[in-house]
Design a protein around this nucleic acid. Sequence first.
DNA 1: ACAAAAGTGTTTTGGGTACACCCATGT
DNA 2: ACATGGGTGTACCCAAAACACTTTTGT
Lengths: 247, 247
Amino acid sequence: MEDTLRSPNAMLSTVSVDCVIFGYFENMLSVLVRRESVPFNNQIIEEWKLPGNHVLRNEDINATAARILKEQTGLEGIYVKQFWVFSDPDRLKKRPQDYEWVKPRLKDDRVLTVGFYSLINIDSIDNTQLIEVAKWVNTNEVKELMFDHNEVFEEALKKLRYDLLHEPLVFELLPEKFTLTQMQKIYEAIFNTTYDKRNYRRKINKMPYLIPLNEIQTGVSHKPARLYSFDRNVYEKTRTERFDFRV
Amino acid sequence: MEDTLRSPNAMLSTVSVDCVIFGYFENMLSVLVRRESVPFNNQIIEEWKLPGNHVLRNEDINATAARILKEQTGLEGIYVKQFWVFSDPDRLKKRPQDYEWVKPRLKDDRVLTVGFYSLINIDSIDNTQLIEVAKWVNTNEVKELMFDHNEVFEEALKKLRYDLLHEPLVFELLPEKFTLTQMQKIYEAIFNTTYDKRNYRRKINKMPYLIPLNEIQTGVSHKPARLYSFDRNVYEKTRTERFDFRV
DNA sequence: ACAAAAGTGTTTTGGGTACACCCATGT
DNA sequence: ACATGGGTGTACCCAAAACACTTTTGT
Protein backbone atom coordinates (compact mmCIF):
# COMPACT_ATOMS: atom_id res chain seq x y z
CA MET A 1 0.00 0.00 0.00
CA GLU A 2 2.77 2.36 0.98
CA ASP A 3 4.49 1.35 -2.20
CA THR A 4 1.39 2.11 -4.23
CA LEU A 5 1.04 5.53 -2.65
CA ARG A 6 4.63 6.35 -3.50
CA SER A 7 4.58 5.04 -7.06
CA PRO A 8 5.28 7.70 -9.71
CA ASN A 9 1.72 7.65 -10.98
CA ALA A 10 0.04 7.71 -7.59
CA MET A 11 -2.31 10.61 -6.98
CA LEU A 12 -1.54 13.13 -4.28
CA SER A 13 -4.70 12.74 -2.27
CA THR A 14 -4.84 16.29 -0.88
CA VAL A 15 -3.98 18.34 -3.98
CA SER A 16 -5.97 18.81 -7.16
CA VAL A 17 -6.08 21.09 -10.18
CA ASP A 18 -9.34 22.55 -11.51
CA CYS A 19 -9.36 24.04 -15.00
CA VAL A 20 -11.38 26.95 -16.28
CA ILE A 21 -11.10 26.34 -20.02
CA PHE A 22 -12.00 29.41 -22.05
CA GLY A 23 -12.83 29.32 -25.73
CA TYR A 24 -13.79 32.22 -27.96
CA PHE A 25 -16.05 31.57 -30.94
CA GLU A 26 -19.22 33.02 -32.46
CA ASN A 27 -18.22 36.35 -30.90
CA MET A 28 -18.64 34.94 -27.40
CA LEU A 29 -16.34 33.86 -24.64
CA SER A 30 -17.36 30.43 -23.37
CA VAL A 31 -16.21 28.11 -20.63
CA LEU A 32 -16.14 24.34 -20.62
CA VAL A 33 -18.18 22.51 -17.96
CA ARG A 34 -18.86 18.82 -17.54
CA ARG A 35 -21.94 16.97 -16.39
CA GLU A 36 -21.92 14.62 -13.42
CA SER A 37 -24.64 12.26 -12.25
CA VAL A 38 -25.07 12.73 -8.53
CA PRO A 39 -26.98 10.30 -6.30
CA PHE A 40 -29.05 12.38 -3.89
CA ASN A 41 -32.28 11.71 -1.99
CA ASN A 42 -32.62 8.35 -3.75
CA GLN A 43 -32.51 10.00 -7.14
CA ILE A 44 -29.83 10.70 -9.67
CA ILE A 45 -29.58 14.42 -10.22
CA GLU A 46 -27.54 16.20 -12.84
CA GLU A 47 -24.87 18.63 -11.72
CA TRP A 48 -22.16 20.57 -13.53
CA LYS A 49 -18.58 21.18 -12.50
CA LEU A 50 -15.27 22.37 -13.84
CA PRO A 51 -12.96 19.65 -15.10
CA GLY A 52 -10.33 18.75 -12.54
CA ASN A 53 -8.13 16.01 -11.25
CA HIS A 54 -5.54 15.20 -8.65
CA VAL A 55 -1.88 15.96 -9.10
CA LEU A 56 0.26 12.88 -9.71
CA ARG A 57 3.36 12.23 -7.71
CA ASN A 58 5.72 12.62 -10.68
CA GLU A 59 4.20 15.66 -12.37
CA ASP A 60 4.21 19.36 -11.67
CA ILE A 61 0.89 21.18 -11.65
CA ASN A 62 1.26 22.50 -15.20
CA ALA A 63 1.47 18.90 -16.36
CA THR A 64 -1.67 18.11 -14.37
CA ALA A 65 -3.49 20.96 -16.10
CA ALA A 66 -2.23 19.82 -19.51
CA ARG A 67 -3.41 16.29 -18.74
CA ILE A 68 -6.88 17.54 -17.85
CA LEU A 69 -7.01 19.56 -21.08
CA LYS A 70 -6.08 16.51 -23.09
CA GLU A 71 -8.71 14.37 -21.36
CA GLN A 72 -11.50 16.88 -21.91
CA THR A 73 -10.75 18.22 -25.37
CA GLY A 74 -8.17 15.95 -26.97
CA LEU A 75 -5.91 18.98 -27.44
CA GLU A 76 -2.25 19.29 -26.51
CA GLY A 77 0.06 22.27 -26.28
CA ILE A 78 -2.71 24.54 -24.99
CA TYR A 79 -1.89 27.61 -22.92
CA VAL A 80 -2.51 26.99 -19.21
CA LYS A 81 -1.86 29.27 -16.27
CA GLN A 82 -2.34 28.84 -12.55
CA PHE A 83 -4.13 31.75 -10.91
CA TRP A 84 -5.18 30.93 -7.34
CA VAL A 85 -5.27 28.26 -4.65
CA PHE A 86 -8.62 27.45 -3.04
CA SER A 87 -8.06 25.97 0.38
CA ASP A 88 -11.17 26.25 2.52
CA PRO A 89 -11.08 23.05 4.62
CA ASP A 90 -14.82 22.60 3.96
CA ARG A 91 -14.83 23.42 0.28
CA LEU A 92 -16.08 19.96 -0.74
CA LYS A 93 -18.85 19.89 1.85
CA LYS A 94 -20.84 23.03 1.23
CA ARG A 95 -23.76 21.20 -0.35
CA PRO A 96 -24.63 17.65 0.75
CA GLN A 97 -25.12 16.43 -2.83
CA ASP A 98 -21.59 17.49 -3.75
CA TYR A 99 -20.13 15.55 -0.88
CA GLU A 100 -22.20 12.46 -1.72
CA TRP A 101 -20.71 12.52 -5.19
CA VAL A 102 -17.15 13.16 -4.18
CA LYS A 103 -16.89 10.91 -1.13
CA PRO A 104 -16.46 7.57 -2.90
CA ARG A 105 -13.84 9.07 -5.21
CA LEU A 106 -11.51 10.47 -2.57
CA LYS A 107 -8.82 9.04 -0.33
CA ASP A 108 -9.01 12.16 1.81
CA ASP A 109 -11.76 14.73 2.24
CA ARG A 110 -9.34 17.63 2.65
CA VAL A 111 -8.35 18.67 -0.85
CA LEU A 112 -6.72 21.94 -1.81
CA THR A 113 -7.16 22.83 -5.44
CA VAL A 114 -5.02 24.99 -7.69
CA GLY A 115 -7.18 26.93 -10.12
CA PHE A 116 -5.89 27.14 -13.70
CA TYR A 117 -7.33 28.92 -16.65
CA SER A 118 -6.59 27.93 -20.20
CA LEU A 119 -7.25 29.46 -23.60
CA ILE A 120 -8.29 27.57 -26.69
CA ASN A 121 -8.08 29.26 -30.04
CA ILE A 122 -10.64 29.27 -32.77
CA ASP A 123 -8.79 26.85 -35.00
CA SER A 124 -8.41 24.36 -32.17
CA ILE A 125 -12.08 24.55 -31.32
CA ASP A 126 -12.89 23.57 -34.88
CA ASN A 127 -10.96 20.36 -34.29
CA THR A 128 -11.91 19.71 -30.69
CA GLN A 129 -13.47 16.39 -29.91
CA LEU A 130 -15.12 17.17 -26.60
CA ILE A 131 -15.87 14.23 -24.40
CA GLU A 132 -19.56 13.47 -24.36
CA VAL A 133 -20.34 14.88 -20.92
CA ALA A 134 -18.77 18.29 -21.61
CA LYS A 135 -20.29 21.45 -23.08
CA TRP A 136 -19.40 25.08 -23.75
CA VAL A 137 -21.33 27.72 -21.78
CA ASN A 138 -21.28 31.45 -22.47
CA THR A 139 -19.45 33.11 -19.59
CA ASN A 140 -22.47 35.34 -18.99
CA GLU A 141 -24.76 32.34 -18.53
CA VAL A 142 -22.91 30.09 -16.09
CA LYS A 143 -25.36 28.42 -13.69
CA GLU A 144 -24.69 26.97 -10.23
CA LEU A 145 -21.72 24.63 -10.25
CA MET A 146 -20.60 22.03 -7.71
CA PHE A 147 -18.30 22.78 -4.77
CA ASP A 148 -16.64 26.21 -4.92
CA HIS A 149 -16.46 26.10 -8.70
CA ASN A 150 -18.49 29.27 -9.26
CA GLU A 151 -15.90 31.13 -7.21
CA VAL A 152 -13.09 29.43 -9.14
CA PHE A 153 -14.71 30.45 -12.41
CA GLU A 154 -15.29 34.07 -11.33
CA GLU A 155 -11.70 34.42 -10.16
CA ALA A 156 -10.44 32.93 -13.41
CA LEU A 157 -12.44 35.45 -15.43
CA LYS A 158 -11.09 38.32 -13.33
CA LYS A 159 -7.55 37.06 -13.77
CA LEU A 160 -8.02 36.53 -17.49
CA ARG A 161 -9.25 40.12 -17.92
CA TYR A 162 -6.34 41.39 -15.91
CA ASP A 163 -3.75 39.34 -17.77
CA LEU A 164 -5.19 40.20 -21.19
CA LEU A 165 -4.23 43.82 -20.56
CA HIS A 166 -0.68 43.00 -19.56
CA GLU A 167 0.43 39.97 -21.54
CA PRO A 168 0.06 38.90 -25.17
CA LEU A 169 -2.69 36.45 -24.26
CA VAL A 170 -5.17 37.44 -26.92
CA PHE A 171 -3.10 35.55 -29.49
CA GLU A 172 -3.84 32.29 -27.68
CA LEU A 173 -7.47 32.81 -28.64
CA LEU A 174 -6.76 33.77 -32.26
CA PRO A 175 -5.75 31.59 -35.18
CA GLU A 176 -2.23 31.87 -36.57
CA LYS A 177 -3.33 34.50 -39.11
CA PHE A 178 -6.06 36.89 -38.09
CA THR A 179 -7.62 40.24 -38.94
CA LEU A 180 -7.54 43.28 -36.69
CA THR A 181 -11.31 43.16 -36.41
CA GLN A 182 -11.16 39.59 -35.10
CA MET A 183 -8.72 40.73 -32.48
CA GLN A 184 -10.82 43.74 -31.55
CA LYS A 185 -13.96 41.65 -31.16
CA ILE A 186 -12.27 39.35 -28.67
CA TYR A 187 -11.52 42.27 -26.39
CA GLU A 188 -15.03 43.58 -26.84
CA ALA A 189 -16.54 40.21 -25.93
CA ILE A 190 -14.35 39.61 -22.90
CA PHE A 191 -14.72 43.12 -21.48
CA ASN A 192 -18.35 43.57 -22.51
CA THR A 193 -17.64 46.82 -24.29
CA THR A 194 -16.97 48.33 -27.71
CA TYR A 195 -14.01 50.24 -29.06
CA ASP A 196 -13.69 52.85 -31.75
CA LYS A 197 -12.11 51.18 -34.75
CA ARG A 198 -9.77 54.04 -35.59
CA ASN A 199 -8.51 54.51 -32.04
CA TYR A 200 -8.12 50.79 -31.64
CA ARG A 201 -6.00 50.53 -34.77
CA ARG A 202 -3.89 53.51 -33.83
CA LYS A 203 -2.92 51.65 -30.67
CA ILE A 204 -2.37 48.41 -32.55
CA ASN A 205 -0.02 50.16 -34.95
CA LYS A 206 2.32 50.90 -32.07
CA MET A 207 2.86 47.18 -31.45
CA PRO A 208 5.90 46.19 -33.50
CA TYR A 209 5.31 42.48 -32.91
CA LEU A 210 2.04 42.59 -34.85
CA ILE A 211 3.18 41.70 -38.35
CA PRO A 212 1.03 42.66 -41.35
CA LEU A 213 1.12 39.84 -43.88
CA ASN A 214 0.87 40.08 -47.65
CA GLU A 215 -2.29 38.06 -47.44
CA ILE A 216 -5.93 38.95 -47.26
CA GLN A 217 -9.10 37.24 -46.19
CA THR A 218 -10.85 35.07 -48.72
CA GLY A 219 -14.45 34.02 -49.08
CA VAL A 220 -16.05 37.13 -47.56
CA SER A 221 -18.63 39.16 -49.43
CA HIS A 222 -17.07 42.50 -48.66
CA LYS A 223 -13.69 44.14 -48.90
CA PRO A 224 -11.29 41.46 -47.64
CA ALA A 225 -9.25 42.40 -44.59
CA ARG A 226 -5.50 42.16 -44.30
CA LEU A 227 -4.19 39.29 -42.20
CA TYR A 228 -1.71 39.75 -39.36
CA SER A 229 0.41 37.44 -37.26
CA PHE A 230 2.02 37.75 -33.84
CA ASP A 231 5.82 37.62 -33.68
CA ARG A 232 6.78 36.42 -30.23
CA ASN A 233 10.47 37.09 -30.78
CA VAL A 234 9.86 40.75 -31.52
CA TYR A 235 7.59 40.90 -28.50
CA GLU A 236 10.21 39.46 -26.16
CA LYS A 237 12.80 41.92 -27.44
CA THR A 238 10.66 45.04 -27.25
CA ARG A 239 8.64 44.41 -24.13
CA THR A 240 9.16 46.79 -21.26
CA GLU A 241 8.61 46.66 -17.54
CA ARG A 242 5.34 48.52 -17.68
CA PHE A 243 4.04 47.03 -20.83
CA ASP A 244 0.39 47.47 -21.37
CA PHE A 245 -2.05 45.69 -23.64
CA ARG A 246 -4.94 47.98 -22.92
CA VAL A 247 -7.11 48.70 -25.91
CA MET B 1 -2.04 6.25 12.88
CA GLU B 2 -4.87 6.89 10.49
CA ASP B 3 -6.60 8.69 13.31
CA THR B 4 -3.55 10.86 13.93
CA LEU B 5 -3.30 11.73 10.27
CA ARG B 6 -6.92 12.81 10.23
CA SER B 7 -6.88 14.80 13.46
CA PRO B 8 -7.67 18.50 13.03
CA ASN B 9 -4.12 19.56 13.81
CA ALA B 10 -2.41 16.98 11.64
CA MET B 11 -0.12 18.36 8.97
CA LEU B 12 -0.94 17.79 5.33
CA SER B 13 2.27 16.04 4.38
CA THR B 14 2.33 17.16 0.72
CA VAL B 15 1.39 20.84 1.05
CA SER B 16 3.34 23.66 2.62
CA VAL B 17 3.37 27.45 2.71
CA ASP B 18 6.58 29.48 2.35
CA CYS B 19 6.53 33.13 3.34
CA VAL B 20 8.48 35.99 1.81
CA ILE B 21 8.19 38.53 4.61
CA PHE B 22 8.98 42.06 3.45
CA GLY B 23 9.80 44.90 5.77
CA TYR B 24 10.67 48.48 4.88
CA PHE B 25 12.95 50.46 7.18
CA GLU B 26 16.07 52.60 6.93
CA ASN B 27 14.98 53.43 3.36
CA MET B 28 15.47 49.81 2.31
CA LEU B 29 13.20 46.93 1.49
CA SER B 30 14.31 43.85 3.37
CA VAL B 31 13.23 40.23 3.52
CA LEU B 32 13.27 37.88 6.48
CA VAL B 33 15.36 34.70 6.23
CA ARG B 34 16.15 32.10 8.85
CA ARG B 35 19.28 30.13 9.55
CA GLU B 36 19.35 26.34 9.54
CA SER B 37 22.14 24.03 10.65
CA VAL B 38 22.60 21.41 7.98
CA PRO B 39 24.60 18.19 8.48
CA PHE B 40 26.63 17.62 5.35
CA ASN B 41 29.88 15.77 4.64
CA ASN B 42 30.31 15.10 8.36
CA GLN B 43 30.14 18.77 9.15
CA ILE B 44 27.41 21.14 10.22
CA ILE B 45 27.05 23.88 7.63
CA GLU B 46 24.94 26.99 7.86
CA GLU B 47 22.22 27.56 5.32
CA TRP B 48 19.43 30.12 4.95
CA LYS B 49 15.85 29.61 3.90
CA LEU B 50 12.50 31.33 3.84
CA PRO B 51 10.25 30.57 6.80
CA GLY B 52 7.65 27.97 5.95
CA ASN B 53 5.52 25.21 7.32
CA HIS B 54 2.98 22.60 6.38
CA VAL B 55 -0.71 23.35 6.11
CA LEU B 56 -2.77 21.87 8.91
CA ARG B 57 -5.85 19.82 8.22
CA ASN B 58 -8.24 22.32 9.77
CA GLU B 59 -6.82 25.57 8.43
CA ASP B 60 -6.90 27.32 5.09
CA ILE B 61 -3.62 28.51 3.62
CA ASN B 62 -4.05 32.09 4.80
CA ALA B 63 -4.19 30.77 8.34
CA THR B 64 -1.02 28.79 7.68
CA ALA B 65 0.73 31.95 6.52
CA ALA B 66 -0.53 33.90 9.54
CA ARG B 67 0.74 31.12 11.82
CA ILE B 68 4.19 31.28 10.23
CA LEU B 69 4.26 35.07 10.63
CA LYS B 70 3.39 34.74 14.30
CA GLU B 71 6.08 32.11 14.86
CA GLN B 72 8.80 34.15 13.19
CA THR B 73 7.99 37.67 14.31
CA GLY B 74 5.45 37.48 17.12
CA LEU B 75 3.13 39.67 15.05
CA GLU B 76 -0.53 39.06 14.29
CA GLY B 77 -2.91 40.67 11.83
CA ILE B 78 -0.20 41.12 9.23
CA TYR B 79 -1.06 41.40 5.55
CA VAL B 80 -0.42 38.12 3.73
CA LYS B 81 -1.10 37.20 0.12
CA GLN B 82 -0.58 34.03 -1.87
CA PHE B 83 1.15 34.60 -5.19
CA TRP B 84 2.27 31.31 -6.78
CA VAL B 85 2.44 27.54 -6.34
CA PHE B 86 5.82 25.84 -6.74
CA SER B 87 5.33 22.24 -7.70
CA ASP B 88 8.46 20.79 -9.29
CA PRO B 89 8.47 17.16 -8.08
CA ASP B 90 12.20 17.49 -7.34
CA ARG B 91 12.15 20.88 -5.72
CA LEU B 92 13.49 19.56 -2.39
CA LYS B 93 16.29 17.57 -3.98
CA LYS B 94 18.20 20.04 -6.09
CA ARG B 95 21.15 20.19 -3.71
CA PRO B 96 22.10 17.15 -1.61
CA GLN B 97 22.59 19.20 1.55
CA ASP B 98 19.03 20.52 1.33
CA TYR B 99 17.64 17.04 1.09
CA GLU B 100 19.77 15.83 4.01
CA TRP B 101 18.26 18.55 6.14
CA VAL B 102 14.67 18.09 5.06
CA LYS B 103 14.51 14.28 4.93
CA PRO B 104 14.14 13.60 8.66
CA ARG B 105 11.47 16.28 8.95
CA LEU B 106 9.12 15.02 6.26
CA LYS B 107 6.50 12.30 6.01
CA ASP B 108 6.64 12.57 2.23
CA ASP B 109 9.33 13.88 -0.08
CA ARG B 110 6.84 15.30 -2.59
CA VAL B 111 5.78 18.69 -1.22
CA LEU B 112 4.06 21.42 -3.15
CA THR B 113 4.44 24.84 -1.62
CA VAL B 114 2.23 27.89 -1.88
CA GLY B 115 4.32 31.06 -1.92
CA PHE B 116 3.00 33.96 0.15
CA TYR B 117 4.38 37.41 0.55
CA SER B 118 3.64 39.56 3.56
CA LEU B 119 4.23 43.18 4.44
CA ILE B 120 5.31 44.44 7.82
CA ASN B 121 5.04 48.11 8.59
CA ILE B 122 7.61 50.32 10.21
CA ASP B 123 5.83 50.52 13.55
CA SER B 124 5.51 46.74 13.75
CA ILE B 125 9.17 46.25 13.00
CA ASP B 126 10.02 48.44 15.98
CA ASN B 127 8.10 46.01 18.17
CA THR B 128 9.08 42.80 16.43
CA GLN B 129 10.69 40.10 18.51
CA LEU B 130 12.36 38.09 15.82
CA ILE B 131 13.24 34.56 16.72
CA GLU B 132 16.95 34.18 17.29
CA VAL B 133 17.72 32.38 14.02
CA ALA B 134 16.05 34.98 11.79
CA LYS B 135 17.47 38.13 10.21
CA TRP B 136 16.50 40.87 7.77
CA VAL B 137 18.36 41.01 4.46
CA ASN B 138 18.23 43.84 1.96
CA THR B 139 16.36 42.57 -1.09
CA ASN B 140 19.34 43.55 -3.26
CA GLU B 141 21.69 41.37 -1.22
CA VAL B 142 19.93 38.03 -0.94
CA LYS B 143 22.44 35.16 -1.16
CA GLU B 144 21.82 31.55 -2.14
CA LEU B 145 18.93 30.05 -0.23
CA MET B 146 17.89 26.43 0.25
CA PHE B 147 15.59 24.54 -2.14
CA ASP B 148 13.87 26.73 -4.71
CA HIS B 149 13.66 29.63 -2.29
CA ASN B 150 15.60 32.08 -4.46
CA GLU B 151 12.98 31.57 -7.14
CA VAL B 152 10.19 31.96 -4.58
CA PHE B 153 11.75 35.19 -3.37
CA GLU B 154 12.23 36.61 -6.90
CA GLU B 155 8.66 35.82 -7.85
CA ALA B 156 7.42 37.43 -4.64
CA LEU B 157 9.33 40.62 -5.40
CA LYS B 158 7.93 40.73 -8.93
CA LYS B 159 4.43 40.20 -7.63
CA LEU B 160 4.88 42.81 -4.91
CA ARG B 161 5.97 45.40 -7.47
CA TYR B 162 3.07 44.54 -9.68
CA ASP B 163 0.52 44.68 -6.88
CA LEU B 164 1.90 47.93 -5.44
CA LEU B 165 0.83 49.68 -8.64
CA HIS B 166 -2.69 48.30 -8.56
CA GLU B 167 -3.71 47.94 -4.93
CA PRO B 168 -3.31 50.11 -1.83
CA LEU B 169 -0.50 47.93 -0.54
CA VAL B 170 1.93 50.69 0.29
CA PHE B 171 -0.09 51.47 3.41
CA GLU B 172 0.75 48.04 4.82
CA LEU B 173 4.37 49.19 4.92
CA LEU B 174 3.61 52.60 6.43
CA PRO B 175 2.65 53.51 10.00
CA GLU B 176 -0.88 54.69 10.72
CA LYS B 177 0.15 58.33 10.24
CA PHE B 178 2.79 59.10 7.67
CA THR B 179 4.27 61.88 5.55
CA LEU B 180 4.08 62.03 1.78
CA THR B 181 7.86 61.81 1.60
CA GLN B 182 7.83 58.55 3.58
CA MET B 183 5.35 57.15 1.09
CA GLN B 184 7.37 58.36 -1.89
CA LYS B 185 10.57 56.83 -0.55
CA ILE B 186 8.96 53.41 -0.27
CA TYR B 187 8.11 53.41 -3.97
CA GLU B 188 11.59 54.68 -4.77
CA ALA B 189 13.21 51.90 -2.74
CA ILE B 190 11.05 49.11 -4.11
CA PHE B 191 11.31 50.18 -7.74
CA ASN B 192 14.92 51.37 -7.53
CA THR B 193 14.11 54.78 -8.97
CA THR B 194 13.36 58.37 -7.99
CA TYR B 195 10.34 60.56 -8.57
CA ASP B 196 9.92 64.27 -8.92
CA LYS B 197 8.38 65.53 -5.71
CA ARG B 198 5.94 67.93 -7.37
CA ASN B 199 4.68 65.44 -9.92
CA TYR B 200 4.42 62.80 -7.24
CA ARG B 201 2.31 65.03 -5.03
CA ARG B 202 0.09 66.11 -7.88
CA LYS B 203 -0.78 62.47 -8.38
CA ILE B 204 -1.23 61.89 -4.67
CA ASN B 205 -3.63 64.80 -4.47
CA LYS B 206 -5.99 62.99 -6.81
CA MET B 207 -6.41 60.15 -4.31
CA PRO B 208 -9.42 61.06 -2.18
CA TYR B 209 -8.71 58.29 0.33
CA LEU B 210 -5.45 59.95 1.38
CA ILE B 211 -6.58 62.10 4.30
CA PRO B 212 -4.44 65.07 5.39
CA LEU B 213 -4.44 65.29 9.17
CA ASN B 214 -4.18 68.40 11.34
CA GLU B 215 -0.95 67.03 12.70
CA ILE B 216 2.65 67.50 11.81
CA GLN B 217 5.88 65.63 12.38
CA THR B 218 7.71 66.29 15.64
CA GLY B 219 11.35 65.92 16.57
CA VAL B 220 12.82 66.75 13.20
CA SER B 221 15.39 69.51 12.71
CA HIS B 222 13.72 71.00 9.67
CA LYS B 223 10.32 72.14 8.60
CA PRO B 224 7.96 69.45 9.93
CA ALA B 225 5.83 67.67 7.35
CA ARG B 226 2.10 67.22 7.47
CA LEU B 227 0.88 63.76 8.42
CA TYR B 228 -1.62 61.79 6.35
CA SER B 229 -3.66 58.66 6.87
CA PHE B 230 -5.29 56.15 4.53
CA ASP B 231 -9.07 55.84 4.60
CA ARG B 232 -9.98 52.37 3.39
CA ASN B 233 -13.69 53.16 3.29
CA VAL B 234 -13.19 56.02 0.89
CA TYR B 235 -10.91 53.81 -1.16
CA GLU B 236 -13.47 51.02 -1.46
CA LYS B 237 -16.15 53.52 -2.51
CA THR B 238 -14.09 55.34 -5.09
CA ARG B 239 -12.05 52.58 -6.62
CA THR B 240 -12.64 51.83 -10.26
CA GLU B 241 -12.07 48.85 -12.52
CA ARG B 242 -8.88 50.24 -13.95
CA PHE B 243 -7.55 51.75 -10.80
CA ASP B 244 -3.93 52.51 -10.88
CA PHE B 245 -1.44 53.24 -8.14
CA ARG B 246 1.35 54.14 -10.47
CA VAL B 247 3.50 56.98 -9.24
C1' DA C 1 23.21 82.05 10.05
C1' DC C 2 22.98 77.76 8.41
C1' DA C 3 21.42 73.08 7.33
C1' DA C 4 17.71 70.24 6.04
C1' DA C 5 13.67 68.83 4.23
C1' DA C 6 8.74 70.80 3.21
C1' DG C 7 5.99 72.69 0.07
C1' DT C 8 4.40 74.87 -4.27
C1' DG C 9 3.17 76.32 -10.51
C1' DT C 10 4.04 76.58 -15.22
C1' DT C 11 5.11 74.88 -19.72
C1' DT C 12 5.60 71.37 -23.06
C1' DT C 13 4.58 67.00 -24.99
C1' DG C 14 2.12 62.96 -26.05
C1' DG C 15 -1.70 59.92 -25.55
C1' DG C 16 -6.74 59.24 -25.12
C1' DT C 17 -11.05 60.03 -27.08
C1' DA C 18 -14.66 61.56 -29.99
C1' DC C 19 -16.18 61.69 -34.48
C1' DA C 20 -17.65 60.55 -40.49
C1' DC C 21 -16.65 59.22 -44.85
C1' DC C 22 -14.82 56.57 -48.91
C1' DC C 23 -13.16 51.80 -50.55
C1' DA C 24 -13.11 47.04 -52.26
C1' DT C 25 -15.42 43.00 -52.81
C1' DG C 26 -19.42 39.43 -53.59
C1' DT C 27 -24.01 38.91 -54.93
C1' DA D 1 -26.61 48.70 -57.78
C1' DC D 2 -26.41 47.43 -53.35
C1' DA D 3 -24.95 45.45 -48.99
C1' DT D 4 -21.13 44.61 -46.03
C1' DG D 5 -17.40 45.27 -43.39
C1' DG D 6 -12.40 47.43 -44.37
C1' DG D 7 -9.78 51.20 -43.83
C1' DT D 8 -8.36 56.07 -42.85
C1' DG D 9 -7.33 61.69 -40.27
C1' DT D 10 -8.25 65.59 -37.33
C1' DA D 11 -9.27 68.33 -33.26
C1' DC D 12 -9.63 68.68 -28.33
C1' DC D 13 -8.48 67.65 -23.71
C1' DC D 14 -6.00 65.95 -20.05
C1' DA D 15 -2.22 63.59 -17.96
C1' DA D 16 2.82 62.97 -17.75
C1' DA D 17 7.18 64.99 -17.29
C1' DA D 18 10.65 68.48 -16.90
C1' DC D 19 12.08 72.08 -14.17
C1' DA D 20 13.66 75.99 -9.31
C1' DC D 21 12.65 78.57 -5.65
C1' DT D 22 10.66 79.92 -1.02
C1' DT D 23 9.32 78.31 3.73
C1' DT D 24 9.79 76.50 8.27
C1' DT D 25 12.02 74.44 11.81
C1' DG D 26 16.21 72.97 14.96
C1' DT D 27 20.85 73.76 16.01
